[in-house]
Structure formats: structure tokens, C-alpha cells
Amino acid sequence: MGWKRVKQHYRISHIVHVSGGNICIGSVVDLERMVINPEGVIIRRPMRSDIEFDRFVREMDADPQSLVRLVTAEDEFDAQRTVTVYTFAGGRILEKQCEARGWPGVTHDGMLMYDHLFSTDKAVTVVRAKADARSAARAIQTDIDNTQLELRKLKSGLSNAEAYLAQLEADYPQEDWLHG
């Protein structure tokens, strides 16, 4: 996917990255202010006017075939500037390539590089991944404990309601006493 080609061709100074298979253009405040699908169609346009956005949206609209060609072409990267970085997803350590490390840099495959999720040091990434997994496990265990406590409360409430109903049924066995 040609996220880099799009950024260069349209001289975009905003953050350009890939998310959910789409090319996203935005800022720190709104990373997906504009979204282009893999076929080169703009599927989300900027909601507010901005000189730079207005310029490149006009250029894209004026020549949609060029946008399609750029999006569907493979990006090219300078091997001399390429740096290996590591991140994690679930229980896997991922090796990626990029030209500029750190925020708001983007890997060759378009992933936005958050400083706390990417490192050039694989060992640092492993430590971060384990800490993240440990923290997630603790949070989920807390949720489970809270849910079990709430379930015990609900079961107690149900038991009380059933006991009240049984008492009422025993004390007032005939429903027609109301109509008497």
C-alpha cells in the first residue's frame, strides 16, 4: 500500500499512517481526520477546513486515477536509512522496519510508532510486552473478581425474592382471595 507515495506526492506534512487497511491522514488530535481505502477512494473527508487539507483534497479530487495509482503501488524505502524496530502484539514480538524512529514515525508497513510500544532494542520490547501482559492479566482478574462479587449479590437477591414469594404463597395459597 502506497501510504508513503501519497504523503510525498501530495506534500502532506500531517501524520500519514495505515490503520485497519486504510491510509489515514491526521494529526495528534485526530489521527483519522481523512481516510482513503485500499482501492484509492476517500471514505472519510475532513470535517473542517484547513489550508493544507483543502489543497491536497482538491488535488486528489481533480485526478482520482492518480490517487488510485499511488495507493495501490508499493512504497519504496531507502535501504541506507532503514532501521529495525520492535513492537509487540499479544504474545508475539514483531520486527518492523522504518526510516525514522519514534513518534510520529511510521513503519514501512504503515504502523504509527508510539514511543512506549516501539524500540530498537528487542530486549526492551520484551520487557514492555511482559509488563503489558501482566497488567492486562491483573486488570482482567480484577474485573472477574468484581463480576463474581456482583453475581453473588444478584444470587442472594434472587434467593431472597424466591423466599418472599414462597412465604406469600404459603400464607396466601388461594389467588381468588383478592376477588372476594
Rank of each mutant, 00 (worst) to 15 (best):
V29H: 14
L151V: 08
F53N: 04
R44C: 02
E52L: 13
L168H: 14
L165R: 15
K122F: 07
H14F: 09
V126T: 13
A163Y: 11
Q97W: 07
L67Q: 05
R138N: 08
C24Q: 04
D61R: 09
C24I: 05
S135E: 13
I43V: 15
V41P: 00
D121T: 05
R45F: 14
A79H: 05
R128A: 09
A131E: 14
R92E: 14
Y114F: 15
A137I: 07
F56V: 03
P104F: 08
I144V: 15
D78N: 14
D54H: 06
P64M: 07
T142I: 04
V68I: 10
E32V: 03
R11K: 15
I140M: 12
R5D: 06
F77R: 02
N160W: 05
I51T: 12
G20R: 03
G26V: 10
M1N: 06
D143S: 09
N37S: 05
H116I: 08
L94Y: 08
E59K: 12
I42Q: 02
A170T: 09
F88E: 00
D61G: 06
I51V: 13
A100I: 11
A129M: 15
V16F: 06
G157N: 15
A137S: 08
R128V: 06
E39G: 06
L112K: 03
P46E: 10
K155E: 11
S49M: 01
R101I: 11
L149P: 00
R138G: 02
E74Q: 06
E59L: 15
L178A: 07
V85S: 03
V71S: 02
A170Q: 12
H179Q: 02
Q167R: 13
K155G: 01
Q167P: 00
L112I: 04
D30P: 01
I23P: 04
K122V: 01
I51W: 01
Q167Y: 08
S156T: 14
A133R: 13
A131G: 12
P173R: 10
D121F: 03
F77P: 04
M60V: 11
T120C: 13
L31P: 09
M113G: 04
Q8D: 15
D30C: 09
L31I: 09
P38E: 11
G110Y: 03
Q141L: 12
L67S: 08
L158H: 05
I23R: 00
R134L: 13
E76D: 10
S27F: 00
N146D: 15
V83K: 14
D176E: 15
F118S: 02
K4Y: 05
A163F: 12
M60N: 03
